Amino acid sequence: MRGPDSAVEAVLRQRRPDPRCWDVIVEAVCADSASGGADRALVQAGPAIARHADRIAEDLRRQQGFFGTAVGHGVSLRALALAGAGDLRALPALHHLAEHGGLPYNRAEARIMAALPAADLVPVMLTRLRRDNDDAYHDNTTALEVLALCGPAAAPAVAEVARRLDTPYAYDALRVLGGIGPAAAATADRLAAYATGRDPRTSRHHPRRAAWAHWKVTGDPALALDVCGAAVRSGTASHGLPFLADLGPLAAPHADAVRGLLDSPGAWTRVAAAHAYWRITGDAEPAVPVLLAEVDPHWTGQPAAPVQEAVRRLGEIGAPAAGPAAPLLRRILAREERLTHAYDSSRILADEAYVRTLTDALERIAPEGADLVPVPRGAARLG
């Protein structure tokens, strides 16, 4: 039987660790004898610890105390672990944490919480935003990240999110409002002001996101086509390409400019251009070789390389055009070791996100052989 430290090392390094490693980690955390490494592993565990959910929920109640009002690290840790497993018993604790400023505070933890149903998460995030602490960086970024992942279900939060357009969190607010779509139509004028630079708070990153959001809430693509197309033509291509890709055939007037970026010296720009060109024209022939060239089988998770993005876009293209990618994706997915570049606090999350991307891509590219590759035990279905 492994000790807690070796169990943590195993789950951090192996895609298919012995399930008993999770038993050891849960026991150590619930017995208050765990190291920080066990804590960090547990919050990333997702469905791998679902069979221990009753034990963790019971321990969460203990951590909250007799009156159920404690909001310390122990409460946050256990609530996050349950949330990652999709267990609704996390919600009361998350709501209480939101009321008292103890909500988990980084984007990775936001994505863990997003394993819970969006309709249940939105009231928690509204509680967080209504605490009138616009200067609290972690509180705002966490709440806005979760709401962005909720998409149209975040509609009840429109008013609170729109308030963030007047704060340093405007870019995240733009992302949320665009994801909400028509239910945020009342913000269209504000979005147009950011897109055109009329708002004095507009920075260089705002116009494309704001123009995209304006299209999503109004259904009118004219502003997005103008702003994002201008970005592609001006040499700030990577800032406009993802939005032109989302516009798809509506962006046909910009297809030639996008195709010219397939040979860009920047890998991220090449990948974004390949994706955008395919989405705009439906022609995968020039896009697939560009994307396939970026799929490094030895990638360690270094964010400077757009490997995961290239795999995702190949998956979207699917069969038969992306068929040449299938053998390489199977080989990568069969690896036993996780990505090693990410910090321990997000290594499991980063690797399982990559595994999901590879698996989803294979299911689209070569569905007849996707089930031949071993899948990590308890792979989490998080954003």
Rank of each mutant, 00 (worst) to 15 (best):
A379L: 14
A143Y: 01
R208D: 11
D32I: 01
H254Q: 14
E27P: 01
R61D: 06
E27Y: 12
C21Y: 02
R13W: 06
R330V: 02
A326W: 03
A83G: 07
R190G: 15
R338L: 13
G229M: 10
E368W: 14
V29Q: 01
V271H: 00
A257L: 00
R61S: 02
V232N: 07
R13K: 12
A255C: 09
P17A: 00
W299P: 02
I25H: 09
P367C: 05
L147P: 06
V288E: 09
V24P: 06
R331K: 14
A98Y: 09
P324T: 10
E99K: 13
L358K: 04
D87F: 03
A153C: 12
N140G: 05
P92F: 04
W215M: 13
A322C: 11
E160M: 11
A195I: 00
S264R: 06
P327L: 08
E336S: 14
C150V: 00
R61T: 03
L97G: 04
C30P: 06
R198D: 15
L333E: 12
W22C: 08
P374R: 14
R335W: 02
G101R: 04
T187M: 12
F66K: 07
G235T: 03
D283K: 04
G260A: 12
R164W: 01
L129M: 11
I180N: 11
A157M: 08
R163S: 08
L97D: 02
L97P: 03
L174Y: 07
A38T: 03
A41S: 08
V295C: 04
A257T: 05
R131P: 09
R131C: 07
S35T: 13
T187N: 08
A155H: 14
A251R: 04
D132V: 13
E58C: 06
R381E: 15
I56C: 05
S76V: 01
R233T: 05
L121C: 11
L80M: 12
D360G: 10
A28K: 03
G197V: 11
L80I: 08
R279Q: 13
G301L: 09
R163M: 08
D220G: 08
A251P: 07
L191K: 00
V43P: 00
D246R: 15
G240Q: 10
R190F: 02
L225V: 11
G282L: 13
A93H: 06
P324Q: 07
A154Y: 07
T269F: 12
P123V: 13
Y171S: 08
A185N: 12
A305F: 12
I332V: 15
R204E: 14
P156Q: 00
I280A: 06
N140W: 03
L88Y: 08
D263T: 14
A366M: 07
D54F: 02
A192H: 10
L174N: 07
A370E: 00
H138P: 02
R15Y: 12
S238G: 03
A85E: 06
Y169R: 03
V258T: 05
P207K: 01
A213L: 02
G3T: 14
H73S: 13
A231P: 00
G197A: 08
A173N: 06
A370V: 15
A79I: 09
E309K: 14
V122Y: 09
R347T: 04
V295H: 01
A184V: 05
T269G: 09
A325V: 00
